[in-house]
Design a protein around this nucleic acid. Structure first.
Lengths: 234, 234
DNA sequence: CAGTGGTCTAGACCACTAT
DNA sequence: TAGTGGTCTAGACCACTGG
């Protein structure tokens, strides 16, 4: 692990453990460099990361302060790798509806930059939070990059499997949001009525080298769709 | 303007002007340092900013590549200061419904960290895109920080006024999204039916020094609510 | 193993805040 | 005007990619 990552993690931990609140002041730069025995630039890099993550803000001439605004139960869209981390403390569950290999719809093939007739794993699940339907998930995995998937794996966190077992290194993700109407079938799965609104999230996940490996279409239950996006200068 | 900002802007311009596409390679670091006559660290800082903005991705040992994925007409939530920039090329308009001074609801007073009975400017507008209702806006401005507002100003871009005339320096913003039902009155303004779904966006805008100055509640027309969130490692 | 991006440092100097 | 964060540099060294 890199020095600035280590420092960022420790400062994050420090904020959590001391239960610091909005506006609380962190130690000054010079003290932090001494504390962590690294150069000023390294501390600044660590702080920049925490600023991007929405945890702190820095005021020139004044100090470094805790931001911490996140409402509980909201999914942080800037997080990158799914919503497990944001919904910690909530009981999450999955009901697998189907897992198959297929040639995907054109839109997906395009998004994943597939050759003609190249196959994907197509996974359909109902995600459940505290016993209630959270969202309907349709996920397409490029078989070229996600070489193996089975029913057992898909019962748990697919992203954990990709990272820990397939050693896939995540890069960036594009997320598109809009409102759609549910079909009769979808509504039934979610315990809603045909034509009820849902929040649609379309995401394309890329490896660190820019190759797209997953196209996900999530339809969130209108009562459960709660998102958070922190922004900073930059 | 800072060196790294200038460099970032110029590289962004270079991508646009040469109409570079996803995966196109930018010049290597050494060439960029030479081109811009700045140190390697400064180039890297500029590139990091472009990466956060979702415009490029960097692959160690390989190169710097263009990301460019944005669908047109989608509002970039990570942008920070409203949606004018994302909706460039679209005809935007506002219909002011009311502008008054008042003591705001508790939730707003709390979000803006106001004293008891401290007043705000309360602005209600219908935002229009290409002649169709985009969203219903309710915006509360802390009078302590936004010292003056009138009907003329509020006809155009309030944020431009705050930045250019009041010299307000924006810092960070928290955005919360969820789905709500429209009241009869709201639905009428949007050309929809009572109970129709809308995408609710609640945002608290802060100055660079952490003081909250604006609480905005936007209800987007379900057919116009299109959002984009780019994420990167970090 | 050459090419390319990334980390980390020490230190000079700058810019803003608070008093 | 002292305290504190930010910019920028030159350079040593490291880590990954791809032929």
């Amino acid at each position: 692990m890199l020095k600035y990552e280590k420092v960022a993690n420790q400062i994050e931990l420090f904020i959590k453990e001391n239960d610091l609140n909005q506006g609380d002041k962190l130690p000054i730069l010079d003290d932090l460099t001494e504390e962590f025995k690294v150069s000023k630039s390294t501390i600044i890099k660590a702080l920049d990361i925490l600023e991007i993550k929405g945890l702190i803000y820095q005021v020139r001439g004044s100090g470094i302060f805790v931001r911490k605004s996140h409402r509980s139960g909201y999914i942080n869209l800037s997080g990158g790798d799914g919503f497990r981390k944001d919904l910690e403390g909530f009981e999450l569950d999955s009901k697998v509806i189907s897992l198959e290999q297929m040639v995907p719809p054109k839109k997906v093939a395009l998004g994943l930059k597939l050759e003609d007739n190249e196959e994907v794993y197509y996974l359909k699940r109902l995600r459940i939070i505290e016993g209630a339907p959270l969202c309907l998930e349709e996920s397409y995995f490029s078989k070229k990059l996600v070489i193996y998937l089975n029913n057992e794996i898909v019962q748990g966190s697919v992203f954990d499997y990709l990272r820990d077992d397939l050693k896939i290194e995540f890069g960036f993700t594009d997320i598109y949001l809009r409102i759609v109407d549910l079909s009769k079938k979808e509504a039934e799965l979610m315990g809603l009525k045909e034509g009820d609104a849902a929040l649609l999230s379309e995401s394309i996940y890329h490896l660190h080298n820019g190759e797209p490996f997953n196209y996900s279409i999530l339809k969130y239950h209108k009562d459960q769709a709660q998102f958070f996006v922190p922004t900073s200068r930059y």
